[in-house]
Computed example of a mutant assay.
Amino acid sequence: MDTALPPALPHWLPYCARLQTRPLADIDLVVIHCTELPDLDMARQYGERELYASGTGNSGHFYIDRDGRIEQYVPLHCVAHHVRGYNPRSVGIELVNRGRWPHWLDSQHQAMDEPYSPAQLQALQQLLDSLGAALPGLRWIAGHEDLDREQVPASDDARQLVARKRDPGPQFPWHQVLSATTLQRLPGA
């Protein structure tokens, strides 16, 4: 089985052994997320929650803190639950960023104005390079918001619809990231 890729520190979730597995050759997509939580500790708490009958929960594979520290919560050969419909073929990378926290679906709280730190973006680039070297089928990159476009009733006014997912959001520097990687934006993203 695989191990953590440098420079990531392995910090496996307690339920990793219960996740479905896959051949590494099946992975062709990286999905960029933001945690929409205030810090890495809270992201870990959310990741440890068991939400499914299988005893697993929602989590990305890698988490990048604001200081550039990378932790790996799920081994690459395991299917993490991070984006509906794309999990078996993808690696989820979560950037710590408050996003819309704590009022994710409030119609008056949809701005995502926290910029990503230079250290986070540098660590992301290193991680993308490492993943590209380790996963020969890796070709595509997308944001969570590109793949989950569902609109849901706002928590403060059910007559209004808001995006269920907006991450990584408007502060994510797609041009910068794409210019430094061989990965291509997933068609339709």
Score class of each variant (00 low, 15 high):
P7D: 09
H103G: 05
H11F: 15
L147Y: 04
E71V: 13
P7E: 08
A119C: 09
H109Y: 11
M112C: 05
W104F: 09
Y52E: 12
V96N: 06
G55C: 06
A154C: 07
L5M: 06
D26S: 15
R159A: 13
A119V: 07
N58S: 11
R166L: 11
D28Y: 00
C34N: 15
R49L: 14
S130D: 05
Q110Y: 05
V30L: 04
R44P: 02
A80I: 06
L135V: 01
V83R: 10
P88G: 06
S90F: 06
D157F: 04
G47V: 01
A53L: 14
D39T: 05
A17R: 15
S130E: 06
H109M: 05
D156P: 01
H144Y: 13
L128Q: 01
G85C: 09
N97H: 12
P23R: 12
I32K: 03
D157S: 07
D2I: 12
C78E: 07
G92N: 07
V79E: 03
G55V: 03
L124M: 07
Y86I: 12
P136M: 03
S179K: 01
A119L: 10
V31Y: 06
P168H: 09
G57I: 03
L186D: 01
H103F: 11
N87S: 14
P173V: 00
R49D: 11
Y46L: 14
Q122I: 04
Q20F: 14
L186Q: 03
Q72R: 10
V79W: 07
H175D: 14
L131T: 02
A189W: 01
R84C: 10
L138D: 01
P88T: 07
P136H: 01
D2F: 11
D67N: 14
C16I: 15
C34F: 14
R49S: 13
D26E: 15
D28R: 01
W104T: 01
D65S: 10
P23L: 08
D167L: 13
R49Y: 11
Q160K: 14
P168D: 08
A8D: 07
G132P: 03
G137A: 09
G143N: 03
L5R: 04
P168F: 08
E145G: 07
S90R: 05
L121E: 02
L19E: 00
L161Y: 11
L13W: 14
A142L: 04
R22L: 07
Q184T: 10
G99N: 05
D129L: 10
L121D: 03
L127C: 08
T35L: 10
K165H: 15
A158G: 06
A8K: 06
P88R: 09
A119R: 13
L147D: 07
A180Y: 03
S130L: 07
L183N: 02
G188K: 03
E114T: 09
L29W: 01
A119I: 05
A163G: 08
R164H: 15
L128Y: 00
L135W: 00
M112Y: 02
E145C: 12
T3N: 11
M42L: 15
I32M: 15
P187N: 05
L19A: 05
L138K: 00
D28F: 00
T181F: 03
R98Q: 13
W140I: 00
A158P: 10
